[in-house]
Amino acid sequence: MRIPPRLRSRRYWLETGQAYLYLLPALAVLGVFVFYPFFNAFNISFHKVYLVKRVGGRLIPLYMEYVGLSNFARLFSDPIFIKAVRQTCIYVAISVPITIGLALVLATLLNEGLRLRPFYRLAYFMPYITPVVAIAMVWQWIYNWKYGLLNYFLGFFGVDLINWLNDPRFSLAAVIIMNVWRFVGYQAIILLAGMQGIDRMYYEAAKVDGATGLQAWRKITIPLLTPQIFFVFIISLIGSFKIFEEVLILFNNTPGPLYSAMTMVYYIFDQGFNRFHFGRAAAASVVLFGIIFLLTLFQITVTQRRVHYER
C-alpha cells in the first residue's frame, strides 16, 4: 500500500495534533457520557445490578452479576412492559398523523396570511418552548373533570363530564391532545420554512395554466414539500416514542389509571429509579434503541433514494 503524500507531510500531522486539541473537550464529554454509556447500556442489560452487595466481607456498591438474557426474558414476560409498548405505539400512531396534518394546514395558512405573521408565530410557538413540567401542570388543571376548562367547553356540545385523568379510556387521549397542542406550532414553523423555499415561478406558471389555489397546493406545494414533511414525520415519530414527562406530571407520578398511559420510557424510569432494577431498565432501553435505530435507518434509506424531487 502506498502512503498518500499528505500523510507524509509534517504540516498535516501538526494540524492533526492541533485539531484534536480543539476536539478534546467535546470528545471527552461525549466519550464519557454518550459513547461509553451507550455500550454500557447493552452490558448492563446482561447483568443483575445490586445497589450494594457484600462480597467476601466487603461491601461493593453497584455490584454486577452476569445473568445472560434473563433480563430480556423477564421483560417480555412482564405484562406491564407489553402494555407499555402497546400504549406507546397507540400514542405514536394517533398523535403523529394528527399533529402533522394540523401543522400542514397551519403552515399553509401562515404562508398565505402575511399580516400579523410575527404575532401568529409567537402564539403558535409558545407551547413548544415552555417547560413541559409547568405545561403539564396547567393541563392537569384544564382536564379537571369538575372545574376544568375542557369539560366546560365540551358541555356546550352536550358532552357529559369526562374524567380525563382517572378514566383509563380517556387518559391516553388526554396526553395526545396536550401534545398535539404542544408540537403543532413547532412543526408548522419547519414546514413553513420549506414552503417559503419553493420557487414562486411554479405558482405563476400554474396560474397561467388556470389552476385553482387548491390545485396548486396539491400539485406543487405538497410534492415539493416532501423532504420537510418526511423530516418532520421522522422527528416526531422518534420524539413520540420517547414520551414520558408529560405522563409523570399529568398523572401525579403514576402511569395513569390501570397503567393506561404507561409508556416505554416510563417503564425504564420506573424499573430503574423507583425499583432499582437496573438490569431490566437497561434491557428495556436496548429495546427502545432498537426501535429508534430502525426508524433512523428507514429515514436514511428513504432520504437517500427519493423524497427530493429536485434541487
Binding site: 420517547k242 437496573f278 432501553s285 434503541f289
Partner: peptide, 21 residues
C-alpha cells in the same frame, strides 16, 4: 458524531447514573 443523534437520551440514564455514582 452523526451516529450519536440516533441514541435516545433515555437509553443512557441507567449507565450514566452508574457513572455519576
Amino acid at each position: 458524531l452523526l451516529g450519536t443523534l440516533m441514541i435516545p437520551g433515555q437509553m443512557l440514564l441507567v449507565p450514566n447514573y452508574v457513572t455519576i455514582k
